[in-house]
Design a binder for these strands. Sequence first.
DNA 1: TTTTTATGTTCGCTTTGGAAAGAATAAAAA
DNA 2: TTTTTATTCTTTCCAAAGCGAACATAAAAA
Lengths: 264, 264
Amino acid sequence: MFALERIKIIKKFLIENNQVEVSTLSEALGVSEVTIRRDLEKLEEEGFLTRTHGGAVINPQYEKKPSPMPQIARLQGIDAKIGEIAKIEVQMINDNDIIMFTNGEINRAASKLLKGKRNLTVLTNDIILASELCSNPEVKVLLLGGDVDNSSKAVFGRLAESNLSNFFVNKVFIEVDGVNRNIGFTVNSTEKASLIHQIISNSSTAVFVFTSDIINKTAFYAVGAVSLADKIITNNDISDEYKHYIFENEVQLFTSIDMYEGFA
Amino acid sequence: MFALERIKIIKKFLIENNQVEVSTLSEALGVSEVTIRRDLEKLEEEGFLTRTHGGAVINPQYEKKPSPMPQIARLQGIDAKIGEIAKIEVQMINDNDIIMFTNGEINRAASKLLKGKRNLTVLTNDIILASELCSNPEVKVLLLGGDVDNSSKAVFGRLAESNLSNFFVNKVFIEVDGVNRNIGFTVNSTEKASLIHQIISNSSTAVFVFTSDIINKTAFYAVGAVSLADKIITNNDISDEYKHYIFENEVQLFTSIDMYEGFA
DNA sequence: TTTTTATGTTCGCTTTGGAAAGAATAAAAA
DNA sequence: TTTTTATTCTTTCCAAAGCGAACATAAAAA
């Protein structure tokens, strides 16, 4: 393997993941750590990354931006991903189910695709979802009470959690804001993290959903390891590395309609 | 996780939230508090933040400017009568009050006129009201949980009533659908009637509100006699007959801003 | 051949982050 | 107010991980 090729790979990896460990690269590329350090040194001089103890972090100007300017295209892209995931959710839902949706865009999308299902009971902490879904006569909508959060238009807090303890659902669809291999799932508020814990203990199947955009992103509050999930739904462009990670944790992964890749 | 990555996240969080606690960071990032303090120390040297006991505050020059709320008055569309009543409601609300709004158009209008009030706590069963009001930073919004009703976009039922029993409010503004001299107040669902009873027993002052349109109308479910109310707000065109009826029941009547006609 | 370039190995040195204990500070009680 | 209590902060010490420098090796270039 030539040095130049190595450097290319390192760059590509950094653009995807924002950070790497020296040890990882050394193993992956089959060269010694010293060599990797020398590569990183070059890339640092070049201004591509900043070295840290144990590895390196990409410099902001090279980071893959979550959203450049072509905003319409981007929105469509996201909508597509969300729609894809939402459809899989709906496939998992049967007539007469008692399910829960946590707050989030994907779940809102899924709740709009429930026409055709019969006699559902849906529990949620998402105000928007509840107010839209209740027009569906085949769905009985239960909204948790609690403190209303402005940014997410959802309820959280002590009351929400105590409300929740009155119910037990077949399936819960939990939407998270970050996944990575160190911490597992993360969300952007402590109240949400807390609510999710309560939810998991009140449902027989926990389905975690997220778009591939948030892979390797770390939101601020830890929810817990990936093994908390019984199933995971995300869109197709998920790296093999992450697939393995999910399989290792014995979680079923669904990435496309009519097909799932899982350990069993 | 690298130190640099941690610092990035801390910065990002501070830009969003202006302040953090050491304990929060420690938990969220999965490192010890000592480590967090050392990170904060670096950031303080750098001039990014100022440390405090228990955490840190971002320095003003890095603060994210609060996005100018483009909330132009939407009052124009609101029915004149409703606006008139809503304004009187707002006059009754003081800083630091803990109040409740039942679901209804008048209360939604009133909740939009709360700018300028400070430190309110608002309890409601109205989903629309809750989701709009929560953007007001001076108001802590608590939404009751329960069964979501499609036509009113509000929650009712067993859960709502049991939630309610956890709270006691200074004033409640109850919007009813009918008033007449035989039955008193009426509403258009049994769940609403039931909820109102529960509410009255959990508040010190019950203010009933309605437009003059519904005088002499009878909705389907009885709430109870006019004497349930401590105060009534309605618009001006109310007959002398009804005024007397209200006075006889020892209820204060408010029909126009800055003036009320009542027995005491 | 010698020289150059790329990579590996070894060995102290440095950085990192955790534990513990005492000091400082805020909050609560008297 | 003063005193007490509970947090939080600082300091010191330590172990583990990671690092750079120097030297070693090997293949390619001159």
